[in-house]
Every structure is written in structure tokens, then in C-alpha cells.
Nucleic acid binder design. Sequence first.
DNA 1: TGGGGTTAT
DNA 2: ATAACCC
Length: 462
Amino acid sequence: LSQRKTGLGGSLPALRAPRPSHGKSASAGSAAGRVVVHIDLDCFYAQVEMIRNPELRDKPLGVQQKYIVVTCNYEARKRGVKKMMSVKDAKDKCPQLVLVNGEDLTPYRETSYKVTELLGEFCPLVERLGFDENFVDITEIVEKRLNQLQQSGWSRVGVSGHVYNHQAVNLHDATHVRLVIGSQIAEELRGAIYTRLGLTGCAGVASNKFLSKLVSGTFKPNQQTLLLPESCQDLIRSLDHIQKVPGIGYKTTQRLEMLGVRNVCDLQAFPPAVLEKELGVSAAQRIQKLSYGEDDSPVTPSGPPQSFSDEDSFKKCSSEVEVKEKIEELLPNLVARIHRDGRQPHTIRLTIRQFSTDKWFSRESRQCALPPHLSQKFGKESSNIISPLVDILMKLFRKMIDVDVPFHLTLLSVCFSNLKDLPSSKKGSIGFYLKQMSPPSGSGKREVENVSQGEGSASWDQ
DNA sequence: TGGGGTTAT
DNA sequence: ATAACCC
């Protein structure tokens, strides 16, 4: 199986999203494609900070981690601040820039899951990509709308938002009609995210994940774009460099460039056999299909997280005592997060990054199974699990680093994974996001008070 | 460049 | 355990 979750390629026919099999779907019938929406929140961390402190609303705002402005609001962008700019360059560009520290991801993580949960109220097929993006397969919802429309006599079928390339919609084309209905649903999803959580974002509507993601960025803050199949090639050819293809990263770009492949058209035309020899059959076929806009990877529900980690970077850490102190700083927060989740981790991992001039890349890690009695301890509070965990992590550290030889670390990270539900024993272990959905009808609780009008979630079923 | 995440090999 | 990908 290639890439089921993160990647945009690869497919597994047996796990594919079910075809809309409703009897009355008329013309297009079994040939109907999917309708996928990609939702991408605008400068997410900055938005969260502006909600936490509304006085920041109309000021240029950057979110800082260490020496980097990792993201910023649009006021700051107008003044030339860019994502991942150094604090120094950002302040040069924009002396009035207000900076908030964003090294603690807790507020972003919590808000992020609220968005995913909200989307989950509309539709079960929601896949996260990072903290600020979600894919939603709305094929089934579109089918329902189509049936309702056929009964209530085709009233208002119009596009919501932009159409890529200003392509004309053909309402006699069943695929067009489905995608247009998809654009209306996308508008409602964005509306719900705004009225319930106070967050704005972009959406892209298309027939698969890859295209929905590509098209969502066409009109940038707080707008949405629909891609009709006839404009697919134009969208793809608008990518001037292959690394802008989601799914083609740094390493693959390097290899492709050695083969003389520079843009997407080069990749489309490249001999498949040669590509397979360079990248392997699986990756070659996947990215070449992507170059044509083909992607049959399903929207795979993310569910609760597969791992919990906490990391810190620094200029220098060069003694065992310092390492232990850093680890003791990281652990309490992490342990508390896992406790809140309710599941038990069975694997622990320590990751380090060693100083070096050119290879900023390489990290090393050692992991081991947690002793069962320690896994158990995550269920209950009070007892001190920190100390035994520190001991284990220091052993892992010594497996990587000979402490008798000088070392220079620039990052430490602790990760718990292999999470298992506890044997259905104690209280509210349902935890994270399988928790029950909104109570009966009526308006749910307001997370954000001041965001006024709009439909909450109207009548979605039936 | 940060502080996270995921899957494939 | 590492390597690749994503944000």
C-alpha cells in the first residue's frame, strides 16, 4: 500500500470511498466521480492568537518560534513579512510588527481538533493534514442534495465562490452539477467554521484530494474555488516547478532534476520505465499520475492522533546533565496530554539532532517498548511516572551518544506512540474526538461569542 | 528555519 | 530505525 494518509497518491481499491450507490441518481450513475473539498485555514496560528487577544486584530502580527516568524496575519503580509522569515528580517521590513510566542502548540492543537470535529458533524470522511488543513469527501452529501433537488424542482443551482479559469458551468453535465452542489456545501462548511469557531479559511472543490488541494489556494484569504474537469490541465500546468506538486518533496525533486525533469509537463512526458528505475515502481507511478491530476487515494478519516510528541530546539546542549534537564522539562506536559487523551502508549522514543554545518537535516532516534507497568500508570494520576520515564530516556540517549566523547545537540524530542485503548474499564475514557456530538437540536454552545449571524448547522439529515 | 504530524521501507 | 512526505 502506498501512502494512505499523508500522501496524495497511492490507492487501495478495497478501501476506496464507497461509490454513491443511491438508486435514483439517474444519468451519470456508476460513472460519477467523487466530490472532495480541501479546507485550508488562513494563517492559522495568527488567527488563533487574534481570537485569544482581539486587540491584536488590526495590528501586524507575527507568531514567533525561536528566531523565526513562522506565520503572520495579513496586516503583516501587506508590509512584507513572510512565513518562516527570521525575526530580524521581519522587524526590518515591519518595525511595528507585534510578535507573540507560539512555541507552545496547545492552543493551536486544540483549535485544530475543534475544526476537524466540526467537519465531522457534517460527514464522517474527514482527513487532517497538519493542524490547519482538512480534506472532506462530500460525495454522499452531494448525492442527497441531488435527490432533494430532483423532488423539489431544481430551484437554485448556482456556484458558490469562484470557478477556476472562469470556466462556464454546464448544468446539463451531471459532473458539473455535482461539483456545483459541492461548492455550495463547501460554503456551508466554511460558514460553520466561521460562525462556530470564528475562523476563516479557503476551500477548494474538485474530484479528488490532489486537485482540491491545488485549487484551494487560487484565491487567497477566505475564498473558495471550484475546479471543473475541463480546467484540470490548466491548473496543473500553472505549477512552474515540480516541488509545488503536493507529494513531490525535496528528495524526489533532486532526483527528477538530475533526469532533466523541471516542470510538470516534463514529468507528464517522461518515459515511465526510466522513472520507475530511478524512483521505484510505486513512487514513479504515483507521481506520474499526479502530474496528470489523477489521484485515487481515499479521504481516510484521521481519528485520534497516532502519536504525541514534544520537542525543543536550542543553540547548544553538551552534557548529560543538561540533556536530563531538557527531558524533565518536556515530560510533564506530554504526560498530561496523553492522560487527557485517555489511551495508553506502549512505545517511547527519544530523538536528537546533532550540530553540524551542512547536514541540518539528520536526526537520530532510539525507541523501546514501555514496560507494561509503566503503560498502565498513564491511566491513573498521582503516582510519579516521570522519574522512571526519564531513566528510560537517558538509557536511550546513551545508546545514541557516547557521553565520554564531546557532543553538541541542537534538538531533543520525546514521542509516545503505539497508543491503545484501555480495556474499557474506568470512567470517560472515550476521550479525544470520539466523544459525543452536539446535543439534540438548538444552537450548540458558542466557542466564540462575537462572531454574529449565519446559519449554524442547518438540517443536515434526511 | 519550528514544532509538530503521517506512512513506507 | 530511518527516510520520505505534509503542514
